[in-house]
Design a protein around this nucleic acid. Structure first.
Lengths: 194, 194, 194, 194
DNA sequence: GACTAAGCGAGACGGTACGTCGCGTCTTAAA
DNA sequence: TTTAAGACGCGACGTACCGTCTCGCTTAGTC
């Protein structure tokens, strides 16, 4: 009648999937361990054994979704590659539950050091690396100024997106990635187009 | 003939001040109407009569602090003016309780439309206007390219700051405003210095 | 714009009438000074000046309704007169808001000495007197036993009605007065019919 | 398979006992879940899990007290048995907290259908049955008239008691049961003593 | 094949804070 | 002076989830 015979993974997945559904419907505020327990049939205790808090659970969903968007290797000039990277982020935020989740989760990420570290490790650092690589290649190919600071470039690119998402209250347009890159890049190009 | 404008004062201020102290100590999560009531002696019901939620209360603190930083009219070239504007924001976030508050509040601002609208109305729109004015003057004086988009410039400038504060987990350096402006501005100047 | 120049009576009546309506709709629990104030436009303060509590207000309604049912002088033999008296009470409880009001008010009458005294003075004592008179006449005419105790007779007659109304949870039938009198009276008649 | 029947005990009893004490001191109005929680140390939530309202809690006390007065099988003639039954009720109301509790609870019993049903089921119906049995025996033994209506007899007997308790504002005398039975019974006896 | 050990369901529990209701008191200003 | 208007402190309400805990049950892995 109970006592799942299978491994501990089955539960994990059910819980994660349900969490994602709840997040889609009601955001992070609507996500409660109690609710997930009720909807999955998985006992509260069991959930607590795997996720210490609803934030951790939500972050696990974020991690999962981010992992699903496999980083396809991008080719082309610096501009194209930067747009591609940024566009992936914008699209994820625009078209999936990711936007809602990040809105609800950002305060916890910013506040809880452990959660913040996890987010940085699993999401941010990938972006930093990617932008850094692009910059390195661009400098090597003579496209970008040698003194280009990949760190600040990364913050400018993604900052604009999240600022609008979280504080500026506007919609993320699909062309946003293009517009941002075009606005910034002239500052880093050796030969701005005009 | 109603809504006595005079009476609202004494309590409001005590509550706001106490709220600010609690926010400084424990952040938004530590701010509870119940706690404010206990610490001020003002009845819970009275607080609820003025502030519909702890978010609204926290936002009132934000509003107040923002208002205190009077917008001193800045002179000089576009770069200096932009740095000054951005630096005010950075300093407020770095050196006062504002940083902590924004970390805890951002999810509510992003999530609750009413709160978001209030924040936009009382904080964001001032920045937009300011940046817009600087751009206008800069274009007129021949410093900035005529096609400069003040909106996206504003998002780039402030976005970088908040991105680091909220998601990148780094410290806001005191020189951050300078660095950001210097990184971006070449893209908008007609005659980049080098 | 307001501030009725007329006497204090106008308010009293509006309040009482509104109170009666509310009582009819929602019973004593639904009657609140706050609500009456809102519905009448009469200020809470003013209502408190006239009625110290919602119980007193409700009792005033009871008083008024009782007074409206003028005690028509009844003639006939003891049985007929007793039935008539009891029937008036039953009908009032059955067909008007009185039943609902008494249900909600009885705890306050039983509990609050002042209210209990008022109820006794204005409602109970009339019944005692009436029954006493009927008994006196019945004894004089040779119908009733000389030792007939009007006090206990009164309690038996009305007690049965209120017991059903309040605790036995049954409906008051229209024939209830008849049935009660017929059940009891043989104990007091000198020549029971059979 | 669930609903562990064992666990419910300890807390229930502490709560009930404390409730009884509070009821004795302050009546139903003085009984608050919050107060019971504070005095017992049992969490408010836990109390709410067992008792949906303070009325239900008070009724549980009533139930318990009624159950304690075990219905000792009474022998003797109809009069003696009726007196015994009624006397038990009178004594309970006179000498224990029961009187106070019933005063405070009657409005809720009369008003809330669920509570009324519970009271009827657990208190009233026992009385009805008892009186019915006595009547049946009395008719069989030739003491009582065959047409004796146990239902109305029950209402007359107990009605008189509660009427005095709740509305007539008088003290319940210890001899009350005797007096009531003596007053009524002649109407039902085949051979009234005089 | 019996016997632990682990994982699990079920859910009671203490706890914090929520946001609401209505009370009765009080102050202010207009009529 | 009486009134309307309404702010205020207060007590209690009933609810939502939290995170902890104890309790058997049920499979596995080990002997």
């Amino acid at each position: 009648m109970s006592g799942t015979p299978t491994s501990n993974h089955a539960h994990r997945d059910v819980v994660l999937e349900t969490a994602r559904l709840i997040l889609a419907d009601n955001g992070v505020k609507g996500l409660t361990i109690e609710g997930v327990s009720a909807r999955t049939g998985v006992a509260k205790t069991t959930i607590y054994r795997r996720f210490r808090s609803k934030q951790e659970l939500a972050l696990a969903v974020v991690r999962q979704m981010t992992a699903e968007v496999v980083a396809v290797e991008q080719h082309g000039n610096s501009r194209a590659r930067l747009v591609a990277v940024l566009e992936r982020a914008v699209t994820l935020l625009r078209t999936t539950v990711m936007g809602k989740v990040m809105k609800g989760l950002v305060s916890d990420i910013a506040t809880d050091p452990e959660l913040g570290a996890a987010y940085h490790r699993e999401v941010i650092s990938l972006r930093v690396t990617t932008v850094h690589d692009i910059v390195q290649d661009g400098v090597a190919s003579g496209e970008l100024k040698p003194e280009t600071d990949a760190g600040i470039l990364h913050e400018l690119l993604f900052g604009a997106v999240y600022y609008r998402l979280l504080l500026n209250g506007g919609e993320l347009e699909s062309a946003m990635a293009d517009r941002i890159v075009d606005a910034i890049l002239p500052a880093f190009l050796i030969h701005p187009s005009h």
